[in-house]
Every structure is written in structure tokens, then in C-alpha cells.
Design a protein around this nucleic acid. Structure first.
Lengths: 122, 122
DNA sequence: TTGACAGTTGAGTAACTGTTCAACTATAAT
DNA sequence: ATTATAGTTGAACAGTTACTCAACTGTCAA
């Protein structure tokens, strides 16, 4: 009377459903990547940066003024966005201009905003 | 020669772009709500739960077995998902069955997964 | 070369977050 | 009533994270 398949502090309740869901679940690695992706968008500073860059290419200074934050703070967040391939940049003289690198993000933001606005009864 | 509009450690570089973006940016509160929403999806445990519930209504036990975690850990995360109106539940005897409460989330997950898979060269 | 400004980076810190643990409630069965 | 299982909850702890600060690089102008 052993349960070799699962190690948990509970009994198996709905084995049929479990098997079905297990088979249809995406691969672990894909879920990790996906939640990491959402995590990057899940900070208000980065969300604002992304939204601003969706409207217009901007330099670090512009973003710092727009968000009323230090250049350092903005630069750190841009670094995170860069590492996650969400923004690209070009240097022009002393200034570095950032823009969005991915066309999916806009759609995801818009779907997310739909959700927020409907939920808030707008 | 004062800049009353902005307080920052930088000079205003592109005033025209700044004004344009400022006007088109969503309200701060909406961006906060949006990033909070993404933050909830930005944890792999919660992402797995959401994906599983999208496939089938499940009880806490099932989820604990599926994710190989304790009921307590799952319950805490379900509580977060509940607070953010992403899941609903019904009690049936001793068991509590959870399911998705929002139809937008599936679309957002799918768009996000598209992004991941394309980015990973799939 | 020197100074000024745009931007980056690493260390440090305060705040946040996910899991564990133990104690708890709720329902059902004996 | 008692016991067992499903689930919840609060405190505590460890790991993470966003911003600050100071020092740094890169580019331009004089």
C-alpha cells in the first residue's frame, strides 16, 4: 500500500484529474521562464519605463525626469530590462537611447490593462 | 532660469518628447494595479497553480501533490490569488475546490508563453 | 588635457516575499 | 464526543530586491 509516485503530506484524492492535468501542463522550464517574464513586468518602475518606451524612444535622463527618480535607479532597472531582452539601446554621443525590443509586450500590457480596467468597473 | 516642473539630478533634455509621453501615459494608479497584477503571476508556484486551474478545477490536496509542495504553502499562495481575484472557490464537504475567476488571464498567459517560446527559438 | 555631463556599476541597506512550522477551524465518520 | 482529514492562518526565517551612494567609464567641448 505504497504511493511511490507522489511524496506529500496528503493522500491522493483525484488521481484521474491529476494525471490529466499533469499531461497537459507546460514544461517546468517554460513556466519558470514565463513567471520570470511576468516578474520583470511586475514592478511599477519597470512597468512605467516599458510604457513610456512604448510611446517613444527615450534617454536615461528623460526617463529619470519622467519618473522623478535618479539616473542610477533608472539605469539599474534598464539593466534588468536589458538582461531580459525587453529593451534595446543605441548610443548617440553622450546619450543612450532606449526603446522596446519586443512586439509582444505591448499586446500583453494592453490585455493586462483591459483586465485591470474591467475589474475596477471602468 | 528655473525648472519648476521637474525635480531631478539631471537637466531636461527632450522637453517636447517628455510632454508628449506624459500626456499619453496611463494614470499612475492604473500602472500600479497593472504591475501588481503581473507581480502575482510572476511567481512560479502561483503560475503553476493558475495553469493547473485553467485545465481543471482542483482541490488544495490535488495542487499540493501536483506541485509536490505542502498544503500550507499552496494555501498561502491560493490566498494571494484570492485576494487578487484571480481564483474563486467552493466548499464541498471537507474539500475546497479552486478554479479561475477571470477569463482574461488565460489570454495573457498564452500571449506570454508565445513570447517565451519565440524568444527561446522554438 | 581638463572639465562637464550622460550613463553604468558594485556594495550596502531596508523592505518585501515565499516557505516552514505549529496551532488552529471545519467537516465527516465512527 | 472523539478521531481523522482538508484546509487556513500567523509568526519566524531565509532569500530576494529596489533604491541610495559613491566611484567609475565614455563622450564631447574648450
Amino acid at each position: 500500500m505504497e504511493k511511490e509516485t507522489y511524496e506529500c503530506d496528503v493522500e491522493v484524492i483525484h488521481n484521474d484529474i491529476l494525471e490529466e492535468v499533469k499531461q497537459q501542463m507546460p514544461e517546468d522550464n517554460n513556466i519558470y521562464d514565463l513567471s520570470d517574464f511576468f516578474k520583470v513586468l511586475g514592478d511599477s518602475t519597470r512597468a512605467k519605463i516599458m510604457w513610456a518606451l512604448d510611446l517613444h524612444e527615450m534617454c536615461v535622463c528623460d526617463l529619470a525626469i519622467l519618473l522623478n527618480m535618479t539616473k542610477s535607479a533608472i539605469s539599474h532597472q534598464l539593466s534588468t530590462l536589458r538582461e531580459n531582452n525587453l529593451v534595446k539601446y543605441r548610443r548617440d554621443g553622450k546619450m543612450v537611447y532606449y526603446s522596446l525590443s519586443d512586439y509582444h509586450v505591448k499586446e500583453i500590457f494592453e490585455k493586462g490593462m483591459e483586465h485591470i480596467l474591467e475589474r475596477n468597473g471602468d
